[in-house]
Design a protein around this nucleic acid. Sequence first.
DNA 1: ATTACTGCAAAGCATTTGCAGACTG
DNA 2: CAGTCTGCAAATGCTTTGCAGTAAT
Lengths: 139, 139
Amino acid sequence: MQTSNIKELLNSNGIKATWQRVEILKVLQSSNECLSASQIHQKLSAKNINIDLATVYRVLELFDKKGITQKSVINRKSFFELKKYEHCHYFVCIKCQQKTNIVDCKIDLIKEELRKRNFKVLSHNLEVYGICNKCCGGD
Amino acid sequence: MQTSNIKELLNSNGIKATWQRVEILKVLQSSNECLSASQIHQKLSAKNINIDLATVYRVLELFDKKGITQKSVINRKSFFELKKYEHCHYFVCIKCQQKTNIVDCKIDLIKEELRKRNFKVLSHNLEVYGICNKCCGGD
DNA sequence: ATTACTGCAAAGCATTTGCAGACTG
DNA sequence: CAGTCTGCAAATGCTTTGCAGTAAT
């Protein structure tokens, strides 16, 4: 995606398009997995783009609040990715650390249970740990 | 429960019964909710029992490894409680911070899905945030 | 005596914050 | 110009670790 389109995307979400935000969004768009703030910071550094880590955190928090990214907390660390149509969480392999999507986390069933008790669910986080199919076989 | 019984409980789990471990276990037994390391530390202090916070962390880690406690990570903090028969997680009210059990987290359905794909689930964590029944009504 | 356990202090790590200067409209 | 955003540095909060002294078998 072109920088100009990215700027429009930001503006349409009520976000002022500073070059830092544009670059961070580019990194998110070019990644097919969720990234932590420091991973994003590293990817930027690799492109010789220097943005302070604190700025990366602030921008990601903004993106999240505006709904253009979705955050997952895994092992106490935040990971961000562009918000997709499907809601998702991750299975994390304790051997190779690879993350695999869990699309259906059954939260609707839990929500329904809680709604009956008059609890209103606003957000949730699910982490599943184990051994992935690749690491299951050999090793 | 008497101290002697607590010692037996520890020994039967292969844990040497130091007085610090006995006291920490007493706190866990007398609580009807999950506690963080620092909450346990505070409760001990209130009884004029001084155990270093680092020791509390080490003991809780040991209890967890030996399976006498179960840990929940909520907002990046660890909370411990004695392991119960029912598996559980928490709904946390974002207004009053109160935690409420979610007994059935539907992990078996997720496990089944993953097993079909040859992933082995070893552990998981679920956090659900929202507004509890008390805070929903009035406020 | 050997091994395990604790207290103390310091370090670690992800994240947040205060502030002054830079940028943007 | 007024308000926002950024870089820098320092602080935060929870947790972990190194080490030397203590306790227990």
